[in-house]
Amino acid sequence: MRFLLISLLLITTLQGTAQVRDIKSKVKEDKSKGVTSGRSYSGSTAYWEPPELEDGLAEFLVGRLFYYTAYGVYRAADYGQSKMQNRRFEYPETFSFESGVVSGFDFNSNTFLTSPSARINWGLFASDLRYQYTHDVTDALHVIDWQVLKLRFPIQNLKIEYGAGFSHVFDPSKTYFEQSVGFDWCLLDRKANLQGEYRWTQTTSIGERFRKEAGVMVDYEIKKINQLGFCPSMGFKYQNFFESTRFRFVQLGLKIRVY
């Protein structure tokens, strides 16, 4: 019996391919090519040089067009934010703070993921910060993802979101611009919350994106103390690194929400 258990343990351990090690190897390759080709500064951000414009067109873009566009966006955001303020008691989740931690496991590759996170919702805007630790038998990957600004478009209990920020790998040190689209849907008189998101980073110097990710998570409030809500969560996350390394995580966690 002991021999059988040891054999099963060895089999499941050896099933974990060199996935995390492959990701870090690709990041190193991207970093070295980015430096030698001059496509990035210090190997961290993509280098971009704007096209040259004629004086008349440049003055128009920088002057009138930019002014009226910025002014229109400001006025629309100000109007929408004031409307959200007036409805914050009817839809309290639009002004809230969330923190929590989730852990996931990919049974195919024997890979473990844990991710603490924090998020601020402020009417039409939000900011989402998370840390991801991915580990298998070959190596460990440490990444910080920050969607610095998210724009939220409310439709009653449903919010459609678009965000922009960055994803930073610690070892080797490399930063990628990242965008996201998703939704945030309150259900069952705000006891349950369903969130879905798709993220994608910039194309790297080796011709592939660092990461594409799709996930869905649902949580349910089981206890509320004053303004604190305690919500167990479960979900699924798919990640694709450099179009060659893929993870499928089944996730469980706990979220704390403050209205």
Rank of each mutant, 00 (worst) to 15 (best):
M1R: 09
L5G: 03
L9T: 12
L14T: 14
G16V: 14
Q19L: 03
V27I: 15
K28G: 12
V35C: 10
V35I: 15
T36Q: 04
G38N: 01
G38D: 04
Y41D: 00
S42N: 11
T45D: 06
Y47I: 12
Y67A: 01
A70P: 06
Q85K: 10
Y91D: 06
S96Q: 01
S96I: 13
E98K: 05
V101Y: 10
F107Q: 00
N108P: 03
L113H: 13
S115P: 15
S115V: 13
A118Q: 05
W122C: 06
F125A: 11
F125I: 13
Y131H: 13
H142V: 07
I144Q: 07
F153N: 12
N157G: 07
E161V: 15
Y162K: 09
F166L: 11
S167C: 13
H168V: 15
V169A: 05
K174A: 06
F183R: 02
C186A: 03
N193D: 01
Q195R: 15
G196C: 04
G196D: 03
T201H: 04
E208G: 06
R211P: 11
E213R: 06
E213I: 11
Y220D: 02
E221S: 09
G235K: 15
Y238H: 14
Q239S: 08
F242S: 05
F242M: 04
S244D: 07
F247S: 09
I256Y: 07
